[in-house]
Design a protein around this nucleic acid. Structure first.
Length: 839
RNA sequence: GGGCGAUUAGCUCAGUUGGUUAGAGCAUUAGUCUUACAAACUAAGGGUCAUAGGUUCGAGUCCUAUAUCGCCCACCA
């Protein structure tokens, strides 16, 4: 028997261990059809946040549902080494101990990283368990483990051999704090206060000058030209002449290039090919020298004259002061402009000329776009609009910079000897080869996740059986980073999509709609919420509160009401258990009308819930279940069942309905449903491996449903009449029916009279039932007003409906059953009005 | 500049291929210990569905435009 009160802590304690001990999460029953999901591997950088809880709860719901539907389910868990993110954390931790990464050396530093990883993996494991996730831990992978590293190397070498990976000197995004290159996707643009510095670039041997505006004056040491638009009347005659670079005194040419926009600023732009991507292109067109002025850490290098060694921002300040002193500064114009910042270190990113490895995206992205046109093989996004995000990105994407000047990650399988390059799975034969120091972008390995985790490139049983996966669940914020890249790598290397469905969810925000972040301090720890309300409540709330793809405003009050819902389920279960005696089997014959009614409702619910589960519309599942359980089962059926609880059919119906409810709720709230299910007198080994309810036509009774619906509505209007008219308990009633259910529910036995009494009457009626309530009472102004109001409403409705039915277009074009319904309704409204007028 | 989303009750959100009187939770009002549950029960109030047009017998839903808010991408010398 269940405890008197629902206590989520008692319910959830030790239950996960039991599931694991029984190996319920493990896949491998080859007699069943396979279904697979790979977890988006959380970074080993820290604890899981609410976003993870949401994302993984969704997956657990899908996998538990499919498991109960009889699939052999693989939910493959794992973690991501998260190159730069983890490296930054470890560097910070070492710094606390006054240890510098470079002094420590590569090998020792990596040991520290692995130590960090192990600590965080175990935190993640315990959090997965708290959340109740049914991941198959025997299949767990880590992006840096041996198998995955082999896959990464294999892919790198293959792409290199196909000419899709190349090494080149380009302008990339440089993070001067982490001292590494970044991909475009790792740069966050933020509006910052800055300035346009207007400088004088004097023409050679002249007192005339060009006014050049720049936001980064410190790069002028790298200027190798100034550009004007060749069609700009103001300047076109100057093309071919030279100007003197301020302070430096060097002579640089004035060139004509379309890049200079006559409408923007002064129309003159300084060209710094080593520090700006556009200038780099201009430099290529005009064969300009590339002069770097910055070191890797963002300080000025030897080209910066006396400013050498200064930080870039210090230099800017000093330089401007000196330019001003020499009369070379015209003005400082305050502006806000958007400036790139490193996603991980938040440092201002510097466009920087550097030799890096790139993936040529042209053919890879084209293949994704082609594949999305094929209905049979495309990745199906839910909701579908997110496909556009992938397609847009794929139709306009730059080459992917994949090398990172870090230590934590997959080291690039390239070796150099003088001018020679060797790329291969293992080091080349011979002396003098030096391996590339750099590692790969962390997304390079995650892009292979759906198949590398299954043992690919080896043709393992796991890979053959579970790949391609069925569904991937992730937030819309990482469609570029991850979903796109998995898709092109999968198409390129396996000739298959990585997953058939991609369920996209939104972001969690705080109650005011702000993004949760450390700097705002508005983050909520899912473990605190589990502590307060239980994992079941948290999971149900997160997964049923929004439509697919929408953001979620986290609201703790709603967690409370979810807890209440579970408490309601708990108590309803207690009622059932207290009333079914020593039932041995479920026998659904000789059913009374209310049992037929709830079974009909139940089967319609099963049908709807299954439909919505298949479509990943969990918010709809939630509302259908909520109203069925609370309104139909608890408020109505249990109340009615109290009058027939000694009947076998009622006991069977109670138990049967509750069992189905528990099974449908199980994917959402695994703990409490397991606990209740265990205490039922009739049950399978475990709810999570029991059969999902199936719509049963035999248990649908249309007539009973209609009649009991009418009874319920009649009871409501009866109570409403008592309440609205302030009728005390000493009324008498005359009824035209013998329906026991109504009499019992309204406790009318003692009040029934057969006479017409000469006191105030109130009529309650429906299609089949009518009651006249007699009550000693003065009719007040308010009572009359109420009657007038009701009459007016009815009359308005009758008028509207009459007009509708007089409309030939409606009668001819609308579906016939709708027209019939309207007619029926009109008739009953007229009847009701007539009754009101009698009063 | 290109794209996407949102705008529905006091708040947070649903609303299916167009079809009853547009729903839920919380909040509000009035009543109730009714032996599963007072974190409950019973009943009630509350919405010109952002605005303006259009299509249709019929529009929260489809089309066009506008406004406000948010997000993504590109650009930003």
């Amino acid at each position: 028997m269940l405890d008197k009160k629902y206590d989520h802590k008692l319910v959830e304690e030790n239950r996960y261990q039991k599931w694991e001990d029984n190996h319920y999460f493990e896949c491998g029953d080859t007699s069943k059809k396979p279904y697979s999901i790979v977890i988006p591997p959380p970074n080993v950088t820290g604890k899981l946040h609410l976003g993870h809880a949401w994302d993984t709860a969704l997956q657990d719901i899908i996998i538990r549902f499919k498991r109960m539907q009889g699939y052999d389910c693989l939910w493959l868990p794992g973690t991501d080494h998260a190159a730069i993110a983890t490296e930054a954390k470890v560097v910070a931790r070492l710094k606390e101990k006054n240890i510098n990464k470079y002094e420590l050396g590569r090998e020792e530093f990596l040991k520290e990283c692995f130590k960090w990883t192990d600590e965080h993996k175990s935190i993640i494991h315990s959090q997965w368990a708290k959340l109740g996730l049914s991941v198959d831990l025997t299949k767990e992978r880590f992006t840096l483990d041996d198998g995955l590293s082999e896959a990464v190397k294999y892919v790198f070498v293959e792409l290199y051999n196909k000419g899709l990976i190349y090494r080149g000197e380009r302008i990339i995004n440089w993070d001067p704090v982490a001292k590494t290159a970044l991909s475009n996707e790792e740069v966050i643009y933020k509006d910052v206060e800055g300035a346009f510095y207007h400088l004088k670039y004097y023409l050679k041997d002249s007192d005339k000058y060009l006014e050049v505006a720049t936001t980064r004056p410190e790069t002028l040491f790298g200027d190798t030209a100034v550009a004007v638009n060749p069609n700009d009347e103001r300047y076109k005659d100057l093309i071919g002449q030279t100007v003197i670079l301020p302070l430096v005194g060097k002579e640089i040419p004035i060139i004509g290039d379309e890049h200079a926009d006559p409408e923007f600023g002064t129309g003159v732009v300084k060209i710094t090919p080593a520090h700006d991507p556009n200038d780099f292109e201009v430099g290529n067109r005009h064969n300009l020298e590339r002069i770097k002025v910055l070191n890797e850490d963002g300080t000025m290098n030897e080209n910066a004259l006396q400013y050498v060694g200064m930080d870039r921002f210090q230099c800017r300040e000093a330089l401007i002061k000196d330019l001003d002193a020499k009369g070379l500064l015209i003005s400082i114009e305050k502006i806000t402009h958007s400036v790139g910042h490193s996603e991980r270190t938040d440092a201002m990113v510097e466009p920087y000329l550097s030799k890096q490895w790139f993936v040529n995206m042209e053919s890879l992205s084209k293949r994704v776009l082609e594949n999305q046109k094929n209905k049979e093989t495309k990745v199906n996004f839910v909701p579908p609009r997110f496909e556009k995000i992938m397609n847009n990105w794929m139709s306009d994407c730059h080459d992917w910079c994949i090398s990172r000047q870090l230590w934590w990650g997959h080291r690039i399988p390239a070796w150099y000897r003088d001018e020679e390059i060797y790329v291969g799975l293992t080091a080349p034969e011979g002396d003098g080869w030096v391996q590339d120091e750099d590692v790969l972008d962390t997304w390079f390995s995650s892009a292979l996740w759906p198949f590398s985790t299954m043992g690919w490139p080896n043709k393992t049983d796991l890979y053959e059986r579970y790949f391609p996966t069925d569904t991937l669940v992730t937030g819309y914020d990482i469609i570029f980073f991850w979903v796109c890249r998995m898709t092109f790598q999968s198409l390129e290397f396996t000739n298959q999509r990585p997953f058939a469905h991609c369920l996209i969810h939104g972001l969690i925000r705080d109650k005011q709609g702000r993004k949760m972040s450390k700097s705002l301090g508005n983050g909520v720890d899912p473990m605190d919420m589990i502590d307060k309300y239980g994992a079941d409540a948290l999971r149900y709330y997160l997964t049923t509160s929004t439509a697919p793809g929408m953001d979620l405003r986290f609201d703790e009050e709603k967690l409370t009401s979810t807890w209440n819902f579970i408490n309601k389920l708990w108590n309803a279960s207690r009622f059932v258990l207290m009333n079914i005696g020593t039932i041995k089997e479920i026998n659904l014959t000789n059913l009374n009308q209310e049992s037929k009614w709830i079974l009909t409702k139940l089967n319609n619910t099963i049908k709807d819930v299954t439909k919505y589960m298949e479509k990943f519309e969990f918010n709809n599942v939630g509302s259908v279940l909520y109203s069925f359980i609370w309104n139909d089962f608890c408020d109505n059926y249990i109340e009615m069942a109290k009058f027939s609880s000694d009947a076998v059919s009622t006991q069977s119906t109670l138990l049967y309905t509750l069992t189905c409810i528990l099974k449908m709720l199980h994917p959402f709230m695994p703990y409490v449903t397991d606990a209740i299910y265990d205490s039922l007198p009739i049950h399978d080994e475990n709810i999570m491996i029991s059969d999902y309810p199936v719509y049963d036509k035999q248990l649908v009774f249309k007539d009973s449903e209609n009649n009991v619906n009418e009874i319920i509505n009649f009871i409501r209007s009866f109570r409403n009449t008592l309440k609205e008219n302030n009728i005390g308990s000493n009324y008498q009633v005359k009824i035209n029916f013998k329906e026991e259910l109504i009499i019992k529910m309204l406790k009318l036995q003692e009040k029934i009279t057969n006479e017409d009494l000469e006191i105030t009457k109130f009529k309650v009626s429906s299609k089949n039932y009518e009651a006249i309530i007699y009550y000693e009472k003065e009719i007040t102004e308010d009572d009359l007003k109420l009657i007038e109001k009701q009459k007016a409403e009815l009359q308005a409705s009758i008028l509207k409906r009459t007009n509708l039915l007089n409309n030939a277009n409606f009668v001819n074009k609308a579906p016939q059953d709708l027209v019939a319904k309207e007619k029926e309704k009109l008739a009953s409204e007229k009847l009701e009005l007539a009754k009101l007028e009698q009063r």
